[in-house]
Amino acid sequence: MKDPKLIQCALQRAAQGDEKAWAELVAWYERLLWSVARGYRLCQDDVEEVCQLTWIRLSERLGQIREPAKLAGWLATVARREAMRLAMDRNAVPVEDTQLESLVAEPVEPPEFLHSDRNRQLWLHFHALSERCQHVLRLLMYSPEASYADMGRSMGLPVGSVGPTKTRCLRTLARKLTKAEVI
């Protein structure tokens, strides 16, 4: 778990043009952004562009982030919204913001080189979870320091629903794995 003071220090130094501090922020959060953007129906090029766009947005707002502990949640929110918007733009479907929630990831075939049956099942069942479940589990994997309030904000959920959602998603995944007799 990253210390908010460490994050604040990196943000301040990066805002002053310190490239090393910016590189630290990239190292801490690039996996989170990649993972979040991967959860949508986008080709690899578009996933890369969502990540780049999110970093550009952070770069523009470095001096404006007052609560460093919320950075992970903020980044995840931006990446998620941009991924959804790009998925919509690519299909050029007229939408309202409220409709963005309905866009869910489709099941993704496990990579051919994934030989272990356990890993293939884990991959398949994770991608068969709802978009919301995938999002909360990705946040928990790559930014465990994010508070439930930040996670709720990035998913459009009340803070009180985050914990139960996390529990339900993990139980669902475990149950599916059990059914597949891999646990």
Partner: peptide, 19 residues
């Protein structure tokens, strides 16, 4: 299985310059 590509890291590092 799904590492962050080097090009994505390079683009991220370049973001402040782009801005």
């Amino acid at each position: 299985v799904d590492p962050v590509p080097a090009a994505v890291t390079a683009a991220a590092l370049n973001a402040p310059m782009v801005v």
